[in-house]
Write a protein that binds this DNA or RNA. Structure first.
Lengths: 130, 130
DNA sequence: GTATCTGCAAACCATTTGCATAGAT
DNA sequence: ATCTATGCAAATGGTTTGCAGATAC
């Protein structure tokens, strides 16, 4: 926890109580790919006075410094705290996301598709309801 | 073109001038993964009186009957007219999408990840700007 | 002391919906 | 004739922003 807060500080951002709690909440439930509202609720348990706009602008900053990424699922922004390339199995009907770590598949994809960037995400959208 | 309109009719939907033009526009530029507004502009070239809500509700119907799918890119809904499993290389910074047809990769993914559904899409999000 | 951050409230914008009229079957 | 589709206009909802006061440094 302290280490991530240090990352925030070293990125030139001021360390406020709000940001400490936002980073803590991301560490606690980030792996669940929470929506902004879900994350907001967790943060408010610790810091009831925090506003949504503070959460929002802080997340933007954290995204800029590369600490998190986001993606959309059914119209809601979801947090991606794992900033290494990996695979998300996204069940659109269930509104659920599951992380897959499989270096071999990633290597195959990179090689066969000629992906040069080290910043990528493989979202596999599964539509079960038709 | 007629064939797709027939699909619409056989799905139990009424064939109106609006729907004919919407299907035509999808056939013309669907492969470019247009946003709803881009599609709307194309349709209006042929049918200037069509409303956005007609486009919107018709797209919902077309999605229900399995003719198209949609996904999000940078907060906008994009049309996916290729309803076979395939790979989209999505450059988030450029706001661009490129289709990849590669049965071998799809088979590897299905096998290694245990994907049972025949309705899936592989969206590879590439973030170049950080 | 000063530049950044916070919280409130209002704006934005891409949909999404209600409903009266029009039209396909 | 009936039931679905259209278009208008208003509502929704998830962000996104302006700004005055507060705070980290």
């Amino acid at each position: 926890m302290d280490s991530l807060v240090e990352v925030v500080r070293k990125a030139g951002l001021r360390v406020t109580p709000q940001r400490i709690e936002i980073v803590r909440a991301i560490m606690d439930i980030g792996h669940e790919h929470p929506s902004l509202n879900e994350l907001y609720n967790v943060v408010r348990n610790r810091l009831p006075t925090i506003s949504f706009s503070t959460l929002y602008t802080t997340l933007k900053k954290l995204e800029e410094i590369g600490l998190i990424r986001t993606f959309d699922l059914n119209g809601e922004t979801r947090i991606e705290v794992n900033n290494k390339p990996h695979i998300n199995i996204i069940n659109v009907g269930e509104n659920s996301v599951k992380d897959i770590i499989d270096e071999e598949i990633l290597e195959i994809l990179k090689k066969k598709l000629g992906i040069r960037s080290d910043k990528f995400l493989v979202n596999i959208l599964i539509y079960n309801n038709h």
